[in-house]
Amino acid sequence: MSRVPSPPPPAEMSSGPVAESWCYTQIKVVKFSYMWTINNFSFCREEMGEVIKSSTFSSGANDKLKWCLRVNPKGLDEESKDYLSLYLLLVSCPKSEVRAKFKFSILNAKGEETKAMESQRAYRFVQGKDWGFKKFIRRDFLLDEANGLLPDDKLTLFCEVSVVQDSVNISGQNTMNMVKVPECRLADELGGLWENSRFTDCCLCVAGQEFQAHKAILAARSPVFSAMFEHEMEESKKNRVEINDVEPEVFKEMMCFIYTGKAPNLDKMADDLLAAADKYALERLKVMCEDALCSNLSVENAAEILILADLHSADQLKTQAVDFINYHASDVLETSGWKSMVVSHPHLVAEAYRSLASAQCPFLGPPRKRLKQS
């Protein structure tokens, strides 16, 4: 649940008159999402009104509101027999009622949201009550392989729920002597030191190019640089560091992050930047690179990204790559990247197969709970 924001200063709310007192009302909304995959969808019983329910879910471990999704594969009634019906059901509720908006969509073979439908307002739910769409999607369109909505005969539904909580009022009075504290510009100011090479005390040599930097900042941000300058190493004695395995453009992006906490060109060089972040123990930059690479996972590059993640101990990226390969196994196994990995990294192939087997055979063990970014 997000923290209630402070109200904007009255002088910034309007260029008009300023009242002596004010009130700011925040209506709290808890948002969460749920993904439900139905394997072997074409084998569902086709009687009209037949119901399939998901397991229950909530916004978190401490949330007492429990929900589930309900599907009628062949419609709810005679009117909707040519459609799939989809509903959000409130299973248990400690209150007399709650209000919530919802959005349903289908994830296609690429994991993209399609055929989205959402409620136009927050509906009133009581325990045992459901709301949804009797005519969510035509069955003939859903079952047509050309539309790519049932890869490997799996129907994957994605649901986003927004639950309306209580409202909170914050009130106060205006004073004539309003003090406005300026925003912190530390990142910009440190970035200026790097860009202008002011007050530098060490030189970093990268592929024949020299960059002036500040030992204190490098040591504070990177345990690797800290070790170089702290001990009686040649880098500490000469205040000069030779860097041979990072390209200059990648190095500059890494230094921008060290000084400012930002990497504006990360998406263009996420793979190389991940390697640099791993070498210099820049954990936050490493996770930022993992996130960017996750966003660009595809059938063509899944094997290469899995190898990269394994090489640099990028655990979150590795998990996402394995899950992606499992979901698109029939396509990924035909790529040149996968065939190369079979020869060069057989242990990763074995890991992917083990994960695929456990996903398809849940009876082999208890269900695993899916539970950071600093």
Score class of each variant (00 low, 15 high):
residue 3 R to S: 08
residue 4 V to C: 12
residue 5 P to W: 14
residue 6 S to P: 07
residue 7 P to D: 08
residue 7 P to W: 14
residue 9 P to G: 04
residue 11 A to R: 08
residue 11 A to N: 13
residue 12 E to M: 05
residue 13 M to N: 03
residue 14 S to F: 13
residue 14 S to R: 07
residue 15 S to H: 07
residue 16 G to V: 06
residue 21 S to T: 12
residue 23 C to R: 02
residue 24 Y to A: 03
residue 27 I to Y: 14
residue 28 K to N: 13
residue 32 F to C: 14
residue 34 Y to C: 05
residue 34 Y to E: 08
residue 39 N to C: 05
residue 45 R to P: 08
residue 46 E to G: 04
residue 47 E to V: 08
residue 52 I to G: 04
residue 61 A to E: 05
residue 65 L to I: 02
residue 66 K to R: 13
residue 68 C to K: 14
residue 70 R to Y: 15
residue 71 V to R: 00
residue 71 V to K: 14
residue 72 N to S: 04
residue 73 P to Q: 08
residue 74 K to Y: 14
residue 76 L to W: 05
residue 77 D to S: 01
residue 78 E to G: 07
residue 78 E to M: 13
residue 79 E to W: 15
residue 81 K to F: 15
residue 82 D to C: 13
residue 83 Y to E: 14
residue 83 Y to H: 12
residue 85 S to C: 10
residue 87 Y to F: 08
residue 88 L to S: 01
residue 89 L to M: 08
residue 89 L to T: 07
residue 91 V to K: 13
residue 96 S to K: 03
residue 98 V to N: 10
residue 98 V to K: 15
residue 100 A to E: 00
residue 100 A to D: 00
residue 101 K to N: 13
residue 103 K to E: 12
residue 105 S to I: 05
residue 107 L to D: 13
residue 109 A to V: 12
residue 110 K to E: 09
residue 111 G to M: 07
residue 111 G to I: 08
residue 112 E to W: 08
residue 119 S to P: 02
residue 119 S to G: 14
residue 121 R to Y: 13
residue 121 R to D: 09
residue 123 Y to Q: 09
residue 125 F to E: 01
residue 128 G to S: 11
residue 128 G to V: 10
residue 133 F to C: 02
residue 134 K to T: 10
residue 136 F to H: 12
residue 136 F to D: 00
residue 137 I to D: 14
residue 137 I to H: 10
residue 142 L to M: 14
residue 142 L to H: 12
residue 142 L to R: 08
residue 148 G to S: 01
residue 149 L to A: 02
residue 151 P to H: 09
residue 152 D to L: 14
residue 154 K to Q: 12
residue 155 L to R: 00
residue 155 L to Q: 14
residue 161 V to R: 00
residue 165 Q to T: 03
residue 168 V to H: 02
residue 170 I to Q: 02
residue 171 S to F: 03
residue 172 G to H: 04
residue 173 Q to P: 01
residue 174 N to K: 01
residue 177 N to L: 09
residue 180 K to H: 06
residue 181 V to D: 04
residue 188 D to L: 09
residue 191 G to R: 03
residue 194 W to D: 04
residue 196 N to V: 10
residue 197 S to I: 15
residue 200 T to I: 06
residue 200 T to G: 14
residue 201 D to Y: 01
residue 202 C to H: 14
residue 205 C to P: 15
residue 210 E to P: 09
residue 213 A to C: 12
residue 213 A to F: 13
residue 216 A to R: 01
residue 219 A to Y: 15
residue 221 R to M: 12
residue 223 P to V: 14
residue 224 V to E: 10
residue 227 A to I: 13
residue 228 M to K: 07
residue 236 S to T: 11
residue 245 D to N: 05
residue 248 P to H: 05
residue 250 V to S: 07
residue 252 K to E: 02
residue 252 K to M: 06
residue 254 M to N: 00
residue 256 C to F: 10
residue 257 F to C: 08
residue 270 A to S: 04
residue 272 D to R: 02
residue 273 L to Y: 03
residue 273 L to Q: 04
residue 279 K to H: 08
residue 280 Y to H: 02
residue 290 E to A: 08
residue 294 C to N: 08
residue 294 C to S: 04
residue 296 N to P: 14
residue 299 V to W: 04
residue 305 I to M: 12
residue 307 I to L: 02
residue 307 I to E: 13
residue 308 L to V: 02
residue 308 L to C: 07
residue 311 L to D: 08
residue 311 L to P: 01
residue 315 D to R: 10
residue 316 Q to A: 12
residue 318 K to D: 01
residue 318 K to P: 00
residue 318 K to T: 11
residue 319 T to G: 06
residue 319 T to V: 14
residue 320 Q to S: 07
residue 321 A to C: 04
residue 323 D to G: 07
residue 324 F to A: 05
residue 326 N to I: 10
residue 326 N to W: 14
residue 328 H to V: 11
residue 329 A to K: 07
residue 329 A to N: 05
residue 333 L to F: 05
residue 333 L to T: 10
residue 334 E to L: 06
residue 336 S to P: 09
residue 336 S to T: 06
residue 337 G to M: 11
residue 338 W to N: 00
residue 339 K to M: 11
residue 341 M to I: 10
residue 345 H to T: 12
residue 346 P to Q: 11
residue 347 H to L: 03
residue 348 L to G: 00
residue 349 V to R: 00
residue 350 A to C: 11
residue 351 E to L: 14
residue 351 E to G: 05
residue 352 A to I: 07
residue 352 A to R: 02
residue 353 Y to P: 00
residue 354 R to E: 12
residue 355 S to H: 10
residue 355 S to N: 02
residue 355 S to A: 08
residue 357 A to G: 11
residue 358 S to E: 07
residue 360 Q to L: 14
residue 365 G to A: 14
residue 366 P to H: 08
residue 367 P to L: 13
residue 373 Q to Y: 11
